[in-house]
Amino acid sequence: MKNMELLEKLCLATGVSGEEDAVRDIILEEIKPYAERVEVTPLGNVIAWRKGRNRAEKKLMLCAHMDEVGFIINNITGEGFLKFTAVGSVRPEVLTGRSVLVNGKIPGVICAKPVHLMDGGEREKAVPVDQLAIDIGASTKEEAEQVVAIGDNACFVPFFEAVGGTVKGKALDDRAGCFVLLELMKEELEYDTCFVFSVQEEIGMRGAGTAAYVVEPDAAIILEGTTAGDIAGVSPLESVCKMGSGTAVSFMDRSTIYDRAFFKRALAIGKEKEIPCQPKTASAGMNDAGVIHTAKGGARTLTLSVPCRYIHGPAAMTAESDLEATVRLTGALMEEIAGGKL
């Protein structure tokens, strides 16, 4: 797919919830030539209005979140180790011995007690987050404090690779969604549309609701990088969606029951236009739709997702063809929704 450089730039940027600045800067720069009007809300959401050929029958808002899961430093030990807690949902299973970046620039590693010093039971268990620490090489608290303060953020070390149609990258949840929005914004649109890049989704959807309050949409499409569980050791019945099988369309998740007509129409458009798509086969996870569909007087919503394996870990994986399908499917659906045909 074209423009993998843009996705790479987005994935390599640091944007732990509450400090999405670096991602926002890339997006503001990218949308400049296309947005008729841009607003950055008090919490940091980017709201961009894009002119279409016609005024919209129904005010449509597209939304993807800029933030990623990560860590926040909550203490510095006398020996210069950084104690931390997770920002968003991160399994301790993916943390031991991991490389991280503190404040977007200081390399560190998450300590792992050597396997030689553990007894049998210990060897098989993930270490709880509150027992882990980041080592940045400082020998004392004072030395660490020269570069880090309590409250600073850390993230998984940036990684991106697009080879042979497969993309691997940090924070594909939800830079994949941001990427889809940016690609759509560059197209000639039939109707005026509002593009929202939200903050703080990973800590319980705190940004998008405030953006929806400002935008007052009639309808919204949420773009996500969602859980693909089609991996070794998982039964196909539990895989939720499959990487490489096209856009995942949600009927329901843990925070929203989606608009039935939107859900059915998205899958039908896929069939008509031969755009690969699949229904998400579980009601798992939640996203910004939860706060958008209840904002003000309410809005009809649908979530379209790029299937991503290994989200909320050091690197997730998706297929370029899924990104491409999601741009096309969203483009077709937004035209029908904004045109008042649904």
């Binding site: 399994r91 859980t227 050791g233 539990e238 798992a284 290994y310 909320h312 870990g313």
Partner: peptide, 8 residues
């Protein structure tokens, strides 16, 4: 391979 927290 690892499942995300949502599915684990």
């Amino acid at each position: 391979c690892v499942l995300p927290p949502h599915l684990a």
